[in-house]
Computed example of a mutant assay.
Amino acid sequence: AVETGSPLLGFFAAAVGGAVLSLLFAFLTQITLANQVASGLALTLFGLGFSALLGQRYVGIKPPRLPEVNFGPLHDIPVLGPVLFSHDIILYLGLALVVAVWAGLKFTRAGLVLRAVGESHDAAHALGYKVVRIRTLAIMFGGACAGLGGAYISLIRVPQWTEGMTAGVGWIALALVVFASWKPWRLLLGAYLFGGITQLQLNLQGAGVAIPVEYLAMSPYVITILVLVVLSADKNAAPASLGRTFHASN
C-alpha cells in the first residue's frame, strides 16, 4: 500500500498473504494430519517473526488514506448520521461479509455442504464430498479474512506499522467465535463490544482518569470474555467434527 499509494491494493495483498499462509496450515492439518492446536500455535509464532522481518522497512511510515465514503445527506442526520455514516468502506464491507457468510451457510447448497463436513466429515465423505478439499477452501477463506483484519489495523486503525501491533487481538477473534457459540449475530455483537470498550479505555486514558493504564488496557479483553462466557449458554453449538483429523481410510 505504501509503495503503490493504494490502500485497497494493500488489503488485497494482505488477503492473498493470509490465504497462502493458511494453505500451509491446511497442508499440515489436512494432509499430514498434524495436531491442529500445535500447528496453529507454530504458524502464529512464525507469522510474528516473518511479519517483523518484512515490516522493518515500513516502521513509522504513514500509509495512504482510503478514499472517503460519501453518503450525502445521510451523514447530516442528527445523532445517527455520524454514528452510522461516517466510517471507512472496509467497515461496511466487513458488515456485508458477515451477512453474506451467514446467508451462504444457511441458504446455499455450498453452505449446507460445508456445515455437513463440519458436523460429520465421515458422513459427508460417504455421500461423495471431497472433505479435505472443502476444509482447505474454508481454511483459506478464514486466512484471507484474518489477513484483511491485520491490514485494517496497520492501514486504518493505527495507521502505521510497528512490530507486535496486533497486541493479541487475533486471540480475541478466536475467543469470540467460541463464546458466541458459532452464531454470526452474537459474534458481531461481541466484536462491537470489544471494539467499543477498547475505544472507551483509550478515551479514559486521554481524559486522565485516575485508573492505572495497565487496568484500562486489559479491560477490553477481560470484559469481552466475561460477557461472552455468560452469553454462551448453548454448549452444543460447535461443529461435532471440530478439531478432529480426517482420513479417507477411516
Rank of each mutant, 00 (worst) to 15 (best):
L231G: 08
S232I: 05
T166W: 01
M165L: 15
G206P: 11
V2M: 01
A96F: 03
G55P: 11
L231Y: 02
P239M: 06
G196M: 02
L24P: 06
L200G: 05
L174T: 06
L226T: 05
P159E: 12
I211M: 07
T245V: 08
L84M: 12
N35H: 15
R186L: 09
P7S: 09
L93I: 12
G104I: 04
L43W: 06
T166L: 05
T224N: 00
R57K: 14
L54K: 05
P184E: 03
L242E: 15
R65V: 14
V98W: 01
F194E: 00
A175P: 11
V177G: 05
G111Y: 07
L174D: 04
G142Y: 00
G60T: 15
F141C: 15
L41R: 10
A233D: 09
P7T: 10
A237E: 08
L97P: 10
G49T: 12
D76N: 13
S154K: 07
L45C: 08
L9P: 02
L242Y: 05
L54H: 05
K62T: 15
G170M: 05
G72T: 14
A144I: 06
L112F: 05
F27H: 12
I172P: 00
G60N: 15
V99S: 03
T198F: 01
K183G: 06
L21V: 12
I156S: 03
E68K: 12
N70E: 05
A240T: 13
D88L: 04
G18H: 01
F85Q: 08
V209D: 01
K235T: 14
L112G: 06
T224C: 00
T108I: 07
A240E: 08
W185D: 10
L53W: 10
Y152M: 11
L84R: 07
I172G: 02
V2L: 03
G168Y: 04
K183I: 14
L43D: 04
A167K: 11
Y92F: 02
P63C: 04
G47R: 03
V113Q: 12
A144Q: 04
V83Y: 03
L231K: 04
A173G: 15
A34K: 13
P73G: 10
G190P: 06
R109S: 14
S86M: 02
L200Q: 08
L200W: 01
G40D: 02
V158F: 10
T4E: 07
A14E: 00
A191Q: 07
L127Q: 13
A52F: 13
L54Q: 10
T44I: 14
A15D: 06
I172K: 05
T4Q: 09
I153C: 02
G40L: 03
G243D: 05
P64I: 13
L9D: 01
A138K: 07
L176H: 04
A19E: 01
A103W: 13
G147C: 01
R186W: 08
P64V: 13
H121T: 04
L187N: 10
L95Y: 03
A238T: 11
T245K: 10
Y58F: 15
V229T: 06
I172H: 01
G72R: 08
L74M: 08
E214N: 13
T245D: 07
V20T: 08
V2P: 01
L24T: 12
G18C: 07
L148P: 01
G150P: 00
